[in-house]
Write a protein that binds this DNA or RNA. Structure first.
Lengths: 180, 180
DNA sequence: CCGCTCATGTAACTGGTTACATGATTTA
DNA sequence: TAAATCATGTAACCAGTTACATGAGCGG
């Protein structure tokens, strides 16, 4: 009945989905993901994997295939159970909210001069467009993925990005309207 | 030319916007906000305020008004400058992405049984609807606020919430379609 | 053979949270 | 007068990041 943290569950889930794999490949997944909240820092992953092994949620197999033998991770039955429990755990109030760093800055946009404000809005729109492109590229890279849940999850990221772009545009409209 | 962290900037901005006020009132703002990423824990706020005072970004005045004299905080000119710098700082790649805890769980929804999956989707939709209600109530509570930036920022939170509800509905549609 | 990626790890640091402690003032 | 809120603070803890270190195998 062990509970796992979000990062722990993400690692567990990653190993569960992508077969026996190395800790490094899990790490790389985080490093490349444009949507994860975790950086995939080695200092987080490796100690965490050790802990999961110690708790019997992961096990490592010496797979001596080819010339480069590697320690491949696998999820144990209790690991799968822990993952399931994490997924279906009742959502706390914090989980139902999202945090947007641009929103946090928007609140204080009034502290800038009108010229700087305009610049900020342009720059924000540009950054969001670039981010959307990154998301689309990342999606492209995983075109072979047939798992519907992965697909649905990626909808969320795309929705969010598009919604934020519309938001910035509306902000611009609202603010120029006020000046006129 | 001191740089401030996000929490520091938020405190600075809060004091800047809501006149001379106590550290406690700033803290309460975080405690009540349904959208902030910070909990407003005392252990974060008070040491942080002291640091900002030491760095000359905040100053405290003994305002002996009424029966309850209090230490009221004010933003110094360098504090305002630091806030401005934080707002207009170029957005890093991490800032252009948002993180959604529901999305993280969605990726591994396939680990649940079909029945549990359906339950999860229902529960998620319910939680998101409740969150939207909280946002609307919070907005209502600040109806007197005339600042356009506050208003625009709150659009973002509402957009995001509605967009997530549509997302869950689409997910349900997609998944029931697959079963049929 | 040089540089890149694979692969694993650790130590120091950072920053926020939890939990606790205290006391004054207001409201029921 | 008891409970709630205002108000300030601190110490222990935790989790993730940064930066560093090491070595093996592979491609140009």
């Amino acid at each position: 009945m062990t509970k796992v943290s979000e990062l722990e569950a993400s690692v567990l889930g990653q190993v569960w989905k992508h077969g026996p794999c190395t800790a490094y490949s899990v790490r790389k997944h985080f490093l490349e993901s444009p949507t994860s909240r975790f950086s995939g820092s080695a200092g987080a992953i490796y100690p965490l994997v050790s802990r999961l092994e110690a708790r019997g949620l992961l096990r490592s197999r010496e797979v001596g295939r080819g010339r480069r033998p590697g320690k491949k991770l696998e999820v144990t039955p209790s690991g799968r159970a822990a993952l399931r429990r994490w997924v279906e755990a009742p959502l706390g109030g914090e989980e139902s909210g999202t945090y947007d760093p641009l929103r946090a800055k928007m609140v204080f946009l009034g502290s800038l001069s009108p010229a700087k404000r305009r610049r900020w809005l342009e720059e924000a729109e540009r950054a969001l467009a670039a981010h959307l492109k990154r998301l689309e590229a990342h999606r492209e890279a995983y075109a072979g993925e047939t798992d519907p849940y992965f697909e649905i999850a990626s909808w969320n990221a795309l929705d969010q990005a598009r919604s934020r772009i519309r938001w910035i545009r509306r902000a611009k409209a609202r603010l120029t309207a006020a000046t006129r």
